[in-house]
């Protein structure tokens, strides 16, 4: 029906006003978002000092990144840390958020209150969140350590952000604290959207809550799980601020919290210490990040495609 409408109209004379409606958004979006993305990728084939590298070197930057020490080690380390971070956040934030959504959507009082409350941290700037938790976790003020002592876990105290074994886990937990409202909001909206009849029918048939979750809620929520996974994936693989505010741009301790975002920043802009900025090399890292994000998004779109 719509198709015939399109065909009929497309034979009319060119309607300029449509272009005028579209043009402002199209120009701003294209010039400042899409073109910079591709132009930055183009920069990855150049080298040279300053903000506009001029000397064309083909895949030179990529060869350097993949084969030369220390670049190759840093790159694979950042990839590994990003994957670890993603898996931990999927667990701490999205899986736990899913269970909170199920609890909230049961017919209890205060559903709305909890929904808003769980979302409050998301309204805060990442760096504010990072700074707050870096203070809570640091051994100088030691508020978290005192809390552990109080409940009898004093023996486990370690400099949480200074210990390579715990730093990334701590960061993942803070990311989850910050963003748990996102899966909660998405999943509660989706569960609310499930027809009451379906759930009622299941209950009459005596399906248990776990059965209800596994056989009704989970399959119907597949598209939402896909969206939440994509948001988390894109967010994690372009994350920078949380590392900047909790452990610094060098990904300390011992690069245990160095992820793509911090590696990209360090390479592109240099550090106050001794790493010189290399815009071409930074562009190559950004391109690799883009490819990984693209592959990830397509992968999640494929496996969580709505089945109808």
């Amino acid at each position: 029906m719509n198709l015939s409408k399109i065909e009929k109209n497309s034979f009319k004379k060119f309607r300029w006003y449509i272009l005028w409606f579209l043009l402002p958004a199209l120009i701003i979006y294209t010039v400042f978002m899409i073109l910079p993305l591709f132009n930055s990728m183009r920069m990855s084939f150049y080298t040279g000092p300053g903000i506009v590298p001029k000397e064309f070197i083909g895949f030179g930057n990529y060869i350097k990144l993949f084969t030369q020490f220390p670049f190759n080690i840093r790159l694979s380390n950042a990839l590994l840390n990003n994957i670890k971070l993603f898996i931990m956040v999927m667990f701490f934030q999205n899986l736990i958020g899913f269970f909170f959504a199920i609890l909230i959507t049961r017919k209890i009082k205060g559903t709305k209150f909890f929904r808003t409350l769980f979302f409050i941290p998301t309204a805060l700037s990442v760096i504010v969140v990072g700074f707050i938790f870096s203070l809570i976790l640091n051994p100088v003020w030691g508020i978290f350590d005192r809390l552990l002592e109080f409940i009898g876990f004093g023996a486990y105290i370690t400099p949480w952000l200074g210990n390579p074994k715990t730093a990334l886990v701590a960061i993942a937990l803070v990311v989850a604290w910050h963003n748990i409202g996102i899966p909660v909001v998405f999943f509660t909206a989706a569960i609310d959207g499930i027809s009451e009849d379906v759930l009622e029918a299941a209950r009459i048939d005596g399906v248990s809550l776990s059965g209800e979750v596994r056989h009704i809620i989970f399959p119907l929520l597949k598209p939402t799980i896909g969206i939440v996974s994509i948001l988390t994936f894109v967010g994690n693989f372009s994350e920078f601020e949380i590392v900047y505010s909790m452990t610094g741009i060098s990904g300390s301790p011992e690069f245990a919290t160095d992820i793509f975002g911090s590696l990209f920043y360090r390479t592109t802009f240099g550090t106050t210490m001794n790493v010189v900025s290399d815009v071409g090399l930074g562009a190559a890292i950004a391109t690799i990040m883009f490819m990984i994000i693209l592959i990830g998004v397509l992968f999640f779109l494929r496996i969580f495609k709505r089945e109808v």
Binding site: N2, I6, A286
Partner: peptide, 29 residues
């Protein structure tokens, strides 16, 4: 309005929801 390229343009704009704009930082600068 129904016009040629409508669907493509909609998708073109929506793609921006998935792209972290900071990946274009170098050229933006």
């Amino acid at each position: 309005y129904k016009f040629f390229g409508n669907k493509f343009l909609s998708l073109y704009f929506l793609a921006g929801l998935m792209i972290p704009i900071r990946l274009g930082t170098i050229n933006i600068m």
